[in-house]
């Protein structure tokens, strides 16, 4: 695997749209070619090299390419968008759309990310060693096909609207989350190790939510069923199982109605 190192040297006056920072775009290119890739501020087109020191050549394929981005990237959008393989490491905060529509490979952000990280994600892995903004692993506006696969791990807190229209994959939040979790979801798994506020599983058809901490307000459409023991991926304990959203449509399998499941830990 070959590594390309980007270090931000000039901050954009507005925001930099840099979906070119992606192993798929870099693959097969030398440092100077990479520096010549296009980025945008509003309607202006610039070179990646106008904002970043670029060193190292990319591998022949995305899978053989690793990108390390250093510095304050809180005004840089679209890092790792649509990537299918390889690796991106961001040492600093990043702006919106990190790993949006990602299909494979791995992104690690050592810092915080703003909204829409992992939008419409299909595969691969995103690790945020920090906090995530709103709409983490959510669907793009209007799309009923949200996160399909892959895994997102956030060590800190996440904002609202995580996992909207989620159909598969997994989201793990180390800290707390804001309102509206897994709205309209039809699959997938969300684990919240901290506390949740309200509107968990609203309009949820299928899928699983685990909450290890408190929930401020439970949805009226989630009904308590029973206490169960859970021992899964290092999460262990006695959980109260709720099923819902009772107001929503649900499939039947072998005569049984399939509900979404919400597990809340009652003892570790």
């Amino acid at each position: 695997m070959d590594t390309v190192k980007l270090t931000i040297k000039n901050q954009p006056d507005l925001y930099l749209e840099a979906d070119t920072i992606c192993p798929d775009t870099f693959a097969g290119k030398k440092a100077e070619e990479i520096a010549g890739l296009h980025v945008y501020i509003g309607r202006e087109q610039h070179r990646l090299g106008d904002f970043f020191e670029v060193s190292g050549n990319a591998g022949a394929t995305p899978e053989e390419t690793k990108i390390v981005v250093n510095g304050d990237l809180s005004r840089v959008k679209y890092i790792g968008m649509k990537m299918t393989g390889g690796e991106v490491v961001v040492n600093g905060n990043a702006d919106m759309y990190v790993g949006a529509w990602m299909q494979g490979g791995k992104i690690t952000v050592n810092g915080n990310v703003d909204a829409f990280a992992g939008t419409g994600m299909k595969g691969g892995e995103i690790v945020i060693n920090g906090n995530a903004g709103n709409y983490l692993g959510a669907a793009y506006r209007g799309d009923w096909r949200g996160m399909q696969g892959g895994k997102i791990t956030v060590t800190g807190n996440a904002g609202s609207d995580i996992g909207t229209f989620m159909n598969g994959g997994e989201i793990v939040i180390g800290g707390d989350v804001d309102v509206h979790v897994a709205t309209h979801a039809e699959g997938g798994k969300i684990i919240i190790k901290g506390n949740a506020k309200s509107r968990l599983g609203g309009q949820m058809v299928e899928g699983e939510i685990y909450v290890l901490g408190d929930i401020d307000v439970m949805m009226p459409g989630f009904a308590y069923r029973e206490d169960v023991d859970v021992d899964m991926d290092g999460i262990k304990g006695r959980f109260a199982l709720y099923e819902g959203d009772l107001g929503e449509r649900h499939r039947k399998r072998k005569g049984q109605t399939i509900y979404a499941k919400l597990y809340q830990r009652i003892e570790a």
């Binding site: 609203g202 307000v217 949805m219 009226p220 459409g221 009772l246 107001g247």
Partner: peptide
């Protein structure tokens, strides 16, 4: 600020499912 919950409760009620005592 509890509109979402009340709307959800109406949907639960349409289906004849059980509701919490107060929403």
């Amino acid at each position: 600020g509890r509109d979402y919950e009340l709307l959800n409760a109406l949907r639960v009620a349409f289906k004849g499912e059980q509701l919490p005592d107060v929403v």
